[in-house]
Amino acid sequence: MKKVLITGAAGFLGSHLCDRFLAEDYYVMGMDNFITGDQKNIQHLIGLENFEFIEHDVTKYIKIEGNLDCILHFASPASPIDYLKIPIQTLKVGSLGTHNLLGLAKAKNARILIASTSEVYGDPLVHPQTENYYGNVNTIGPRGVYDEAKRFQESITMAYHRFHGVETRIVRIFNTYGPRMRLNDGRVIPAFMGQALRGEDLTIFGDGMQTRSFCYVDDQVEGIYRLLLSDYSYPVNIGNPHEISIKDFAEEILGLTETTQKVIYKELPVDDPLQRQPDISLAKKLLNWEPKVDRKEGLNKTFEYFKTLSTEELYKSEHKDFKQHIKK
């Protein structure tokens, strides 16, 4: 039985990856320090014969006994609420954490897949974004702590590949959504759905003409799985290329939730990308992958999940520290 270590296992994407690799008959070791992850995301896995959980901060030395076939590094704050609130930890997990895991991969002769992000493209001047675009990033802006952590992560990963011969994979993840997202983490879909469920007006930052492209979690996990098993060591975009403006998307959410709130507008945060759309030509050619889940179907599944949350979860606010980052 192959053994995989998944960091960030109690997070949104990490927990879904644990499910997938267990379904593929891997022995799964999940690792998380719960700085942004939630134990409830992996509660259904506790006690399974092929699942082991380790509570640990990946920026500290990592010791794993026995063999290890592959590592998926998904430990990182991933929403604006998180990385603006804990900027130093965000930088450390992208640098020290990645260094530790690459060292572990080298020691165990294991293949490692690094979770990068479309944020390495910054506020792009090229549209849609291809893997050979170098980006337009503000290194000293408030979002730089996340963007640069991920850019450094890619650089050190390629250094380990070229200098030490480590088998590396890099996935650039575009906006992904689905069950187990935190309702109030600042990302568009949980923010809109949370406001709809609470009877609040939907908040758009900026004029709403900025665009995003949303990929359902099952499609994202499939792309990541195929990339891990491929022979390609350079970054690959995994996301849904169907682009929509935030203004149109807000109206879509109001229709889905059958609510009658209005849409209100607030100032756009610093360096918030105006366009985000992946070019997935490489993933199609290399992995024979493209998203299958229609946005309406994915949003319905996600909304049904949010409707099961408790009143406490529904009204918990994580936005109090966000307003200070709207302006420079």
Rank of each mutant, 00 (worst) to 15 (best):
A115Y: 01
Y133M: 06
T117C: 04
R143D: 03
A149G: 10
F152A: 05
L113C: 06
F152Q: 05
V137W: 05
Q129K: 12
H99F: 14
K106Y: 07
Y121H: 09
V93H: 01
V120D: 00
S118Q: 11
I112L: 09
A115E: 02
A110H: 04
G144S: 07
L101G: 01
G144R: 00
S118D: 09
L125Q: 15
I140P: 04
R151W: 08
R111G: 09
N132P: 03
K150R: 13
T130L: 10
V126E: 06
K150T: 01
F152W: 13
I112S: 02
G135N: 07
P128M: 12
A107N: 13
A110V: 09
G94Q: 07
G122Q: 03
A115D: 02
H99Q: 12
G141K: 01
H99S: 08
T98I: 08
N132W: 10
D123K: 07
R143P: 02
L104I: 05
L104W: 02
N100C: 10
G103F: 04
L102T: 00
A149N: 11
G144C: 08
K150Q: 10
N138I: 06
H99I: 07
H127V: 11
G103I: 00
Y133N: 06
N132R: 10
N109T: 15
G135V: 08
I114K: 00
G122V: 06
T117A: 10
Y133C: 03
P124L: 13
Y121S: 02
D147N: 13
R143L: 03
P124E: 15
A115H: 02
G122A: 06
P128Q: 13
A115L: 04
K92E: 04
S118P: 09
K108S: 00
E148F: 13
N109E: 12
A115K: 00
E148H: 11
V93T: 01
Q129M: 13
V120E: 01
S155A: 14
Y146L: 03
S95K: 10
I140L: 12
E119K: 11
I114D: 02
H127A: 11
S118V: 12
F152T: 07
L113F: 06
G135E: 05
S116F: 06
N136C: 08
E131P: 02
Q129R: 11
P124Q: 13
D123R: 10
V137H: 09
K108F: 01
F152E: 00
A110D: 06
L125A: 15
G94L: 04
Q129N: 11
L125R: 15
G144N: 05
V137Q: 05
E131F: 07
E148S: 13
G144F: 09
E119T: 10
E119G: 07
N138G: 09
Q129F: 05
S118G: 14
E131K: 07
R151E: 07
L101N: 00
E154S: 06
T130H: 08
L104K: 00
V120F: 04
S118C: 14
N109I: 13
D123P: 07
L104H: 02
